[in-house]
Structures are given as C-alpha cells and as structure tokens.
Amino acid sequence: MSDAEEAAITFVRAWGEAVLRTVERVADVRRRAAALNRELDRVWDRDGEATLTVIWRENWTEEHTLIWALHQLERWVARLAVERGEEAPQENVTLRNVRNALEHLDEAELPDDATAAVAGDNDRRNRSLRTLPGGQLYIATGGRIFGAFDLRDLAAIAQAQVDRVDLEATARHEASVDAAADSYADKVIDERRDTP
C-alpha cells in the first residue's frame, strides 16, 4: 500500500467519524430544542426564549459543519479510489450545491421570514443556490438538513465508509497474520529438514 493510499484511508476514517459525531451533536441539539419548545408551549418565559435562540444558533452551525464534514468525506473517498486505480464515485451534486450555497450565503437575499435564503436577481451571484429547488436554501433548522438531506441518511453514508475501511483493515491484518504464520511454519519445517 502506498503512503498516499494510507493517508487517504486515514482521512476517509477521520471525516467519516466527524460526520457521525456531528450527526449526534445535531440530534442532541434538536432534542434539546424540542424539549424547550414543548416547555415554552406550556409556560412561556423570556429566559427560555433566549435559550432557544442560543440553541437555534448551535443547531444551525452544527448542520453547516455537518455539510462540510460530509463534503470532505466525499472528497477523500474519491481520492482513495484514485489512489487505488479505481473509478471515483460520482459526486453528490446536491451536496456540492448546498456546500457552495452555504459558502456564499452572505451574498444571498434573506427575506423577512428568514426561513430560506434566495438567490436574488443578480445572475452572476449564487449560482449554486440557483440550482437548488426553488433557487433557495432552507436555513430554518429541524426537518431535512438545509431542506436537502435526512440526518439518518447522512449517518448511514458515513457509517458505510467507516465500516468499509474497518473491514479492509481487518482483512489486511488477518492476511498479515496468516503470512507471518506461514513464514514461521516454513522456517520451522526448513530447520527440521536441515537438522540431521
């Protein structure tokens, strides 16, 4: 195995694990937001509302981080394929467009309801945002991540890649142990043949 392949495997694992950790953080913050929302439905108070705003910001940034980690995972899976002389998997165009739209979110128009960012009238800006359904990126939290991805699906994608590199590592280790055992057995047999 080349050093480049080994590095690619390391980064596939690192970004796959990062996606899984971030999925857990998103799920946790969503649970906290739901519990606080239920409490505020029963008894509204200003402190609870302020806390909910903090939780919303945490949720939004975790979801953004999740998209970045997933993008990095996808890139390193492709690099691993290249290092192995295999065809790289097809790029997830929606992921690319959501990531790019997030990168240029500061250029988008933010309507008063602030549940979605829209591309606006300038055709030279927000090309990725224009490719998303309705030319908008959902920035409200909860439900599908940025209106495009199910949290469980993202976890499954990452888990599949982590499992794949784990299985490959186990297979390499077992092959190494088998080769060492065979070599030792051959050495013992050769020594016995040579002993009068």
Rank of each mutant, 00 (worst) to 15 (best):
T65G: 12
L105P: 09
V23Y: 06
V98E: 06
Q136V: 02
R96Y: 04
T65A: 13
R152D: 13
R30V: 10
D166G: 06
A101T: 06
T195N: 05
A34Q: 14
T170K: 10
V165G: 00
A181K: 07
W56R: 14
A34S: 14
R21Y: 09
R38S: 15
F11P: 01
Q90W: 03
D166P: 01
D163E: 12
R57M: 09
A78C: 02
P196D: 07
Y138N: 13
T141N: 12
P133G: 05
E49Y: 08
E191R: 11
L105W: 02
Q159A: 12
E58D: 15
R130L: 03
S176P: 03
A179W: 07
S128G: 06
V188I: 13
V12R: 03
A155F: 02
T141G: 14
A116T: 10
E74C: 04
N100K: 02
D186W: 00
V162W: 00
Y184P: 02
Q161H: 13
G48T: 13
L52T: 00
K187F: 13
N37Q: 15
N122E: 15
D194E: 13
R25G: 12
F11Q: 08
A81Q: 00
A88Y: 03
N92L: 06
E107L: 13
R84N: 01
Q90Y: 02
D121I: 04
N126D: 14
D112I: 11
W60V: 11
N37C: 11
A18G: 07
G48K: 06
A69K: 00
E6L: 08
D113Y: 03
P133T: 04
A156D: 14
R152F: 04
A180V: 07
G16C: 04
D28K: 01
I145M: 01
S128L: 09
S176K: 13
W44C: 05
Y184A: 15
P133Q: 04
N59F: 02
V19K: 00
A160M: 08
T131V: 11
E63V: 10
W60L: 15
A33H: 11
I9M: 04
G120M: 04
L52S: 04
G48V: 14
R79V: 10
I189V: 12
A34P: 05
D47L: 12
D121G: 15
W60I: 13
R130Q: 01
R164Y: 08
A114P: 02
E191I: 07
R99M: 10
R96T: 11
I157G: 02
N122L: 09
D186F: 03
N122R: 06
N92W: 05
V118M: 02
H173C: 08
R144M: 13
L105T: 07
Q136I: 00
A175Y: 04
A108R: 00
Q161V: 07
R30L: 15
R38G: 15
D190H: 05
R46M: 09
H104Y: 04
L132M: 01
P111S: 06
